[in-house]
Design a protein around this nucleic acid. Structure first.
Lengths: 173, 173
DNA sequence: CGGAATTTGATATGATGGATAACAATTATC
DNA sequence: GATAATTGTTATCCATCATATCAAATTCCG
């Protein structure tokens, strides 16, 4: 497995075709065979994940939100009154790395840190009004563009089955 | 979405429980709710992918192979006579990044670069005997431990369906 | 109470993966 | 033969991930 984003050369401009390969022939000489790679679940899993994240970024591009940032906003909205450690742990983010991430969101006025009165070590995280508004718009974009496209490709039943299996792997594997 | 590896604090040692939370209570105060996150395919996809890669690393640990390295060896075995660009492109690895990766494999005598006689710019990649041997052992480990475990969890039919949907997403999305 | 251990947010730092620009050598094109 | 393209490579940059460490605040427990 390996799987990054750039699978196709994709030269944009089509200048002088200085190639042995025939014009736009997908299988230039003889196509490389994936072989057992196509049976490796991890390989397809990684490639699919990259595609999904890529599409997510496109769909929510007007709001400039990454999947990670979106998940943070979602959690803050759903779980008010939590501190950094709790949110970070839930998302599998290490606390040191969560600091810069929050700095980014806070500098854009999407959320804020408030010193807890109970425990003055911790910061209670809250969504700002702007944060809530952005989140709502993001949710609509994701539902209307991103998830809808998945439904078109797989069909609702398959999509549900896929989600179920992925969740099972994530939780029980 | 976000999803890294460290989801659970996992302190190894269980010292003095200086916590408000009850002992090993998973839901400390009140559990944080994922909410709509659990319906986001990308979220489960990422978490599942991390789990799978993690398990792959464990299963193939005796051979010290990463998923990426394994995929390279697989491709070299299946497609003899190819150069760096072809292999890298197939796996979605950018050529510049593929150089160091090959250096690693070559320094361990798992593969070798041979100057092509036709085109003296390119390096034909070949598996060494050791590389072939390691690959065979890796394949057995993956089949016996990694993929077998997935079969146990999902069942053969579900596993096939999952692979099919992931491939579809990877190729058509 | 008071000292020891913990927790929290934060900083610094390193490792790794991914992406782009640029270069020399070589080859293809015209 | 001159120009353009390709190949492998280096040098960077950026983002993600991971660890050690720290000061402040809190908890634990004798």
């Amino acid at each position: 497995m390996t799987v990054s984003k750039a699978a196709a050369p994709e030269t944009t401009k089509a200048p002088r075709p200085a190639r042995k390969e025939l014009a736009d022939n997908g299988a230039a000489d003889t196509a490389i065979e994936l072989g057992e790679l196509s049976e490796l679940l991890g390989y397809s899993l990684k490639r699919a994940q990259l595609k999904i994240f890529e599409d997510f970024l496109r769909c929510v591009a007007p709001l400039q939100l990454t999947p990670a940032q979106f998940s943070v906003l979602l959690l803050l909205d759903r779980n008010p009154g939590r501190n950094q450690t709790e949110i970070a742990n839930t998302l599998g983010i290490l606390r040191p790395n969560f600091v810069a991430m929050l700095d980014g969101l806070e500098s854009r006025d999407l959320c804020a840190r408030m010193r807890s009165t109970n425990d003055r070590r911790s910061h209670i995280l809250v969504l700002t009004d702007k944060g809530r508004a952005v989140l709502m718009r993001a949710k609509k974009l994701v539902a209307a563009k991103h998830e809808a496209r998945l439904n078109d490709l797989l069909g609702p039943a398959n999509r549900a089955a896929l989600l179920s299996m992925l969740t099972k792997i994530a939780e029980e594997f």
